[in-house]
């Protein structure tokens, strides 16, 4: 079984000055899998990627790579794992020198030219036009693609991407996605991708992890309700959203605890349920097909609050859940879990 897991993490804690950034009880990443990371800013995605990339050592706990403990500068990971940071950094040199830099570090002298050209072609940059450009003569999207090419040229076993398409133009985003998938297909590269582009992640990932406040929830379909909570006359609590879509819950453990619930805690109907059933009105914003399960993920907007739930394709057809339609979402406060 050790063979199947490329990474294995147990009881890992990572803290920055002033607080815990990440706490993971257990996590395994299979070889040649694609893992997506979603979660709000500051939820620990970048921290997790830095740890998986062995840029930092965790404050506590170990990360096993291929069954062996590894850390920054470990020989086993130096030339196999590479990370594309969120704000990629280009060396103050030409494109050619940037892309071949990793090969140079490895003392890989022969065939540099061919591999650099190949990597640039993968990310859609014409080598003859770009090889001799200086770092300052690139657009944001081009710079990000050059940075990705500098990773692809290494033919890495693991490629970690931190919001690779967050701040680039549409064409660059497309090329980046294609190149990452191609690495997976041609070399069996394991990909771990943090992104706000859920549609893409659900399309390509074997597994999407949801991070919040430094914790991982097993998969990404969970909904989260944020406080602060306001006590009502009947002793229960509600969110007070300005647009009226409020949830009524049992007393939370703390004023700004977060309620978490999955598809099993809600029901969708086209007419308003009975008075006793707590519910909110919501509009379907989009449908996503999750390749790994074959299910469809339906995204709703309740006021300005995004929610999602999974359905089989048959349910979608039967209930006529198409984007733009207004539905009622009934929920069961008793099935909510709380995170402080």
């Amino acid at each position: 079984m050790a063979e199947a897991s490329l990474y294995r993490i147990r009881r890992l804690v990572h803290a920055y000055e002033g607080g815990t950034a990440l706490r993971i009880d257990e996590l395994a990443v299979r070889r040649a899998s694609i893992v997506g990371l979603v979660g709000p800013n500051g939820s620990g995605k970048s921290t997790l990627l830095h740890l998986l990339g062995f840029i930092h050592a965790p404050t506590d706990g170990t990360i096993l790579f291929k069954g062996q403990p590894a850390g920054p500068f470990s020989e086993s990971v130096r030339f196999t794992v590479t990370l594309l940071p969120q704000e990629s950094y280009l060396l103050k040199r030409t494109v050619w020198q940037n892309v071949r830099y990793g090969l140079q570090l490895r003392g890989h002298e022969g065939g540099q030219q061919d591999r650099v050209r190949e990597a640039l072609q993968w990310v859609g940059l014409e080598p003859d036009r770009f090889l001799h450009r200086k770092w300052y003569a690139l657009s944001g999207g081009e710079a990000q693609r050059v940075a990705l090419a500098a990773r692809l040229v290494l033919r890495p076993e693991v490629l970690l991407l931190d919001e690779p398409t967050a701040s680039v133009d549409a064409l660059s985003a497309q090329r980046i996605k294609e190149a990452a998938m191609r690495a997976r297909k041609e070399w069996g590269t394991t990909l771990v991708v943090a992104s706000h582009d859920r549609q893409w992640l659900y399309e390509v990932c074997d597994n999407v992890l949801h991070l919040y406040r430094g914790r991982i929830f097993s998969n990404g379909e969970e909904n989260m309700l944020f406080g602060p909570w306001r006590q009502r006359g009947d002793g229960r609590f509600e969110t007070h959203d300005s647009d009226g879509a409020s949830f009524v819950v049992d007393p939370p453990p703390s004023p700004d605890a977060v309620a978490i619930f999955g598809t099993d805690a809600i029901s969708v109907s086209c007419e308003r349920p009975s008075r006793e059933q707590p519910c909110v009105e919501a509009t379907i914003s989009r449908l996503l097909w999750d390749r790994s399960t074959g299910q469809v993920i339906v995204s709703f907007l309740a006021g300005s609050r995004p929610l999602s739930a999974r359905f089989s394709a048959e349910d979608i057809a039967e209930k006529q859940l198409y984007p733009g339609r207004t539905v009622w979402i009934g929920y069961d406060p008793g099935a909510f879990r709380w995170v402080e």
Binding site: H50, V81, L105
Partner: peptide, 26 residues
């Protein structure tokens, strides 16, 4: 220097000495 430089050098496979020389070159 940008903090990202350090991450970039390490994740491209630099050892400690290469980290020093790479940083100084930047």
């Amino acid at each position: 220097l940008d903090r990202q430089l350090q991450f970039t050098l390490v994740s491209l496979g630099a050892d400690r000495l290469q980290l020093l020389t790479g940083t100084l070159w930047e």
